[in-house]
């Protein structure tokens, strides 16, 4: 790719729209995952008592196991939702942009 082409792409409003949408989405989704994993890791590091206590009294399901399962399920759900959203949003924007730039 030549530098003039790079310039043209960088200045295209659709490119800005695409990158902004993607950056926002990526940050949001990453934060959801990191917060979930953070709660789990910091929980077992600094609040082991809480993590060992049952969710409802007398139950054998502890907060720890519940949170571990939730982090696993959260990873699956977020990946699915992200792919669904990216397929609809990014790919449409990208196709328009590539057409503008004469690449398709």
């Amino acid at each position: 790719m030549s530098s003039s082409e790079t310039e043209k792409c960088l200045n295209n409003p659709k490119f800005k729209q695409l990158t902004r949408a993607r950056a926002n989405g990526n940050i949001l989704f990453s934060l959801i995952i990191l917060v979930g994993y953070g709660i789990y890791v910091l929980g077992i590091s600094f609040a082991p008592k809480l993590m060992s206590s049952p969710v409802t009294s007398g139950s054998s399901l502890t907060y720890g196991i519940l949170i571990a399962l939730l982090v696993i399920v959260n990873g699956m759900v977020c990946s699915g939702f992200y792919v669904w959203w990216a397929n609809r949003k990014f790919d449409v924007l990208k196709r328009d942009l590539l057409k503008d730039l004469g690449h398709e």
Partner: peptide, 17 residues
């Protein structure tokens, strides 16, 4: 479980970033 949970936190981030 940390061995399983760590993997499941890594992969979504690989996907996003």
């Amino acid at each position: 479980l940390v061995l399983a949970v760590g993997v499941m936190a890594a992969w979504p981030i690989i996907l996003f970033l």
